[in-house]
Amino acid sequence: MSSTTNWYKLNRSLHRDVGYFCVGLILIFSVSGIAVNHKDDWNPNYRVDVTHIDAAGTQWHEENDSELILQVLSHVEANVEVKASYWSAKDEFKVFLKNGNNLSVNLATSSITYERIEARHIFQAFNRLHLNETKESWVIFSDIFAGLLIFLALSGLFMVKGKYSPLGVKSLWIGLGILLPAGYIFL
């Protein structure tokens, strides 16, 4: 067995094993990347459903917050616990519920906005890792992961010999992979 063959074997084995190790993180970062790329179109961390309720004809108890809260709740759901309330303007009263949902009533128009918030747990977790919200030890781990990705990219160049090696016609793919991002930077 020649030393060249051994080197290729070692490179392929390392590429394979490091690749296996990186699968989970690559999936996490890719899914999260798509999610946060489109954050202007959708909320990657929460599902927020907004319902508008017409409460026309209600005589609001503006002078008594407790009664006002009961009035607002009577238009939405029973048996919910209230976390806090807040007058954001003279005609706008907000009620925050313990289940994470919120209500906002416009006393001038007697319209209630009911905001139901549901966390997207998996996306939240992925995004926290991707955007490095956990900090500290994750920085070290992410650096190692980045190093492994560099290794995967470079070792990938030495996986195949001959006609399909990066020195042959397949170099077009490598060139394209460099030219496309370069195009975005310089054009």
Binding site: Y46, K83, A84, F96, L97, N102, I117
Partner: peptide, 25 residues
């Protein structure tokens, strides 16, 4: 004071405040 509030603002990612914190102190 009624109708008044103060915003606290961080650079993206420095602290991430959960949306479900509304209503908590």
């Amino acid at each position: 004071q009624r109708f008044q509030n103060l915003r606290i603002k961080v650079n993206d990612g420095d602290m991430v405040f959960p949306m479900t914190a509304k209503g908590r102190k």
